[in-house]
Nucleic acid binder design. Structure first.
Length: 795
DNA sequence: TCGAGGCTATTTTTT
DNA sequence: ATAGCCTCGA
């Protein structure tokens, strides 16, 4: 995780402890060597409640994983007796890897190290029949709904109540229900004060939704936690069973727990109090989705006698970066308080620069990155693009960077876009697979019944639903009945008959273990016409979707059968594939939590954007403080150099808006900041930012010139000893596939903009006219149209 | 039933 | 600006 791991003394511990030694009761503890005193305490304080306050970059994961290793090595618990929960699959995976490294063995045997949700599923599957009532309860095979299914279901319920969906959108209801579930509030427990929500229908619809889920033998993500809590509360005997099993409990990112997770943990821990939570109140940035910082602030009173251990030695960032972050976060109230320090010395100050507008900002950052990459900043040295990240407050800020980097041919990767398994084509395909496995999956049926278009509209689907309801059948069988009875006839009827027959065949094959599930998947996508649908689609993203389908099928190979795959996907929805090429990373500040980069850019520090106006409007001081913590997270991602920037003008919702530098900028310590901004834009009042704005390039250039002439810039130049003048248009070394082969007038294809025609060629840069207008793009980003994939059939 | 064009809302996001 | 959603007409 950290560069310091390179000389991590634990590496040595990776050598397996010989069985003979272990059998003799000899328990070497080489993995304890090299821990600082606080870390050592965190590892060795095994019994009773422990609150581990771990500041950014202080070796939190190391402490946590070493603690687990120690528990095992000391014989305090066996693998299956340790419960370790994280929020993300990624964090869980990383912990598994590191424990394996420490112990020199695989950690297949850590069955209860996982996310809150995956652990909850395991527990729930064993007691599913206790969720619900005597008449209607979950079965152990329950399915886990994704957000799409959830919304679709809610829409139906809203329509059934004759509520105007425009005034009360399903998404809002989903949010409401989710918030209740985050607080472990079942419909009957929703307090009166909340009952007026959603025009008074909230609780009623919530109840209806829960009933419907039960009937579908399904749960949503919120249920996983909530059902566990109610299960434990209603069945003390079962709770006791789990308490006895989990002798030791560890929790990562405790500051992010919501009320349901808190109750879940408290119930499990209350018997023995062997609970160790790790967190950093200063990095609590998920209040808006139900996280309660209060949980960590209150830990000592929840678990009297808790030992509080602070990890304050930072191994990640330079003193300047730490100082800037520390000063900023000091403006927050109600902190548990930590003082980060480091043995490191020197390093660059945090840089601050103002720009005329967001485009100038993107341009400048692009040039800086090229300079770092080319080794033109002596103070920093030549850098891989992988070492550089741009962290933005809101995803719409990314566009400016994408556009700019596309133009100059700077490879980038957006982290945290729509997840693979959330994409439409993947969900459609999965719905087909789900139906093949479980023909009674009504939500899946509804999703694909008319995808691809089969001439089955609302009317036909309604008839199927009526048929199914009258006969008490799942939709698929209802559909067959509707066809048989002639309720759905004509063209649609024929298509529906074909579909039901196909699904019957696929189901037979799905439960036939002699049929390869990979081949079956391919056949399903083929025979259903789903692949063909995208092949015939001319939109620019169609080829990408076909690629994704190919990848989906490839992912199937790693599983025994379709069932296994579907189970996996419901919970492990991340497939971030590592691309090998060097790329600058662009992501939101939220997405950056837990990551670190030598060089970090923090653009868009303007009041209203960051801190976000909406946060402040909705949550007042609390909101502002959360934004400040976000800023803190941002700065502390940087190992060597952090650059904060703001723009005087930004295009928002198509309108140019002027803005003022973020109030957070004033909270930075001057001693640790280099101001690269011309006085007009920052410092001497907000003069420049308040002037009337032209949008012409003249202003633009003038502004940039000002920046380069500013004292700050010159100081910067001098400090970084030798180098060429500010790197303007430098050719980029990567992707140096020149424009050779392209001719003016030729049609090309671009992943994002689609089909276009080349209007001009200069070196390796093309001017291309797309449907939306002209773009200047590096040749490497486009392909000749003929190669764009239409004959590249996936299956 | 389906596609075209008008209207509207637009932070952050895991499971 | 823009994407998703909805209404309307064929």
């Amino acid at each position: 995780m950290s560069q310091y791991d390179d000389f991590d003394p634990f590496e040595a511990a990776a050598a397996p402890v010989p069985l003979s030694q272990r059998a003799m009761g000899v328990r070497p503890t080489p993995y304890l060597d090299g821990l600082n005193p606080a870390q050592r305490a965190a590892v060795e304080e095994l019994d009773g409640p422990v609150l581990l306050l771990a500041g950014a970059g202080t070796g939190k994961t190391r402490a946590l994983t070493t603690r687990i290793a120690h528990l095992l090595m000391q014989g305090k618990a066996r693998h299956g007796q340790i419960l370790a929960v994280t929020f993300t699959n990624k964090a869980a995976r990383e912990m598994k890897d590191r424990i394996a490294r420490l112990l020199g063995e695989t950690v297949e045997g850590m069955p209860w190290l996982g996310t809150f949700h995956s652990v909850s599923v395991k527990i729930l599957r064993r007691h599913a029949e206790l969720i619900g009532n005597a008449d209607l309860h979950l079965k152990t095979t329950f399915t886990i709904l994704d957000t799409d299914d959830q919304i679709r279901l809610l829409k139906q319920l809203i329509a059934a109540e004759n509520i105007d969906e425009k005034r009360w959108p399903a998404r809002m209801l989903a949010g409401l229900i989710d918030a209740w579930k985050n607080r472990a509030l079942t419909p009957s427990r929703v307090p009166k004060s909340d009952a007026r929500a959603y025009d008074g229908y909230g609780v009623k619809l919530y109840q209806a939704y829960q009933d419907r889920l039960l009937a579908l033998n399904a749960v949503d993500f919120g249920d996983l936690l909530m059902h566990c809590v109610t299960l434990f509360q209603a069945h003390p005997d079962i709770l006791r069973q789990w308490q006895e099993r989990f002798r030791y409990i560890l929790v990562d990112e405790y500051q992010d727990t919501n009320t349901a997770q808190y109750l879940w943990l408290r119930l499990l821990a209350q018997a023995h109090h062997n609970i160790c939570v790790v967190g950093d109140d200063d990095q609590s940035i998920y209040g808006w989705r139900g996280a309660e910082v209060g949980n960590i602030l209150r830990f000592e009173s929840d678990f009297p006698g808790a030992k509080v251990i602070r990890l304050e030695q930072n191994y990640r960032s330079t003193p300047h970066i730490l100082a800037a972050a520390s000063r900023l976060i000091a403006a927050n109230s109600g902190r548990l308080g930590k003082t980060l320090w480091t043995e490191a010395e020197g390093g660059e100050r945090v840089r601050l620069i103002g720009h005329w507008d967001s485009e100038a900002e993107a341009r400048w950052i692009g040039e800086e990155i090229e300079a770092f990459h080319g080794g033109h900043r002596a103070a920093i040295g030549k850098r891989s693009l992988n070492d550089i990240a741009i962290l933005v407050r809101a995803s719409h800020q990314m566009r400016a960077f994408e556009d700019r980097f596309m133009t100059i041919g700077l490879p980038y990767r957006v982290i945290g876009g729509p997840r693979f398994y959330e994409r439409q084509e993947i969900r459609d395909a999965m719905a087909y697979f789900r139906l093949a496995v479980s023909p009674d999956d009504d939500l899946a049926f509804e999703r694909i019944v008319n995808v691809p278009k089969r001439g089955l509209g609302d009317k036909a689907v309604q008839k199927v639903q009526i048929e199914a309801r009258d006969r008490g059948l799942p939709l698929l069988l209802g559909a067959a009945a509707a066809v048989a009875s002639g309720a759905v006839g004509g063209k649609g009827g024929g298509a529906l008959r074909l579909l039901t027959e196909q699904l019957g065949r696929w189901h037979a094959d799905a439960i036939d273990s002699t049929v390869s599930h990979v081949e079956l998947a391919e056949r399903i996508l083929d025979e259903s016409g789903y692949t063909a649908m995208w092949q015939n689609d001319k939109s620019p993203d169609a080829p990408g979707r076909l690629d994704n389908l190919k990848e989906l099928v490839k992912a199937l190979e790693e599983f025994e059968n379709l069932q296994g795959f579907l189970e996996h996907v419901a919970l492990v929805m991340d497939t971030d594939k590592q691309e090998s090429a060097e790329q600058v990373s662009i992501m939101t500040l939220h997405g950056a939590k837990g990551l670190e980069y030598p060089i970090v850019f923090l653009p868009g520090w303007e009041d209203g954007l960051f801190p976000s106006q909406r946060s402040m409007d909705e949550s007042g001081t609390r909101g502002l403080e959360e934004e400040r913590r976000l800023a803190y997270v941002g700065i502390t991602r940087a190992e060597e150099l952090a650059t904060i920037s703001f723009a005087g003008n930004r295009r928002m919702y198509g309108q140019w808006q002027s803005s003022l530098p973020s109030r957070f900028i004033d909270e930075l310590p001057e001693d640790h900041v280099d101001v690269l901004t011309p006085p007009g834009l920052y410092g001497g009042g907000y003069g420049a930012a308040a002037q009337p704005y032209g949008q012409s390039s003249i202003y633009d250039r003038a502004s940039k010139a000002d920046v380069y002439n500013s004292p700050g810039w010159k100081r910067m130049q001098e400090r970084s000893s030798h180098h060429a003048a500010p790197v303007h248009k430098k050719p980029v070394t990567i992707d140096a596939d020149p424009a050779a082969g392209f001719t003016v007038g030729e049609e090309v294809f671009h992943q994002k903009f689609g089909k276009g025609r080349i209007m001009g060629i200069a070196e390796d840069t093309l001017t291309v006219e797309f449907g939306t207008g002209f773009k200047t793009i590096k040749a490497a980003y486009v392909q000749p149209l003929s190669a764009a994939g239409s004959d590249d059939v996936p299956f």
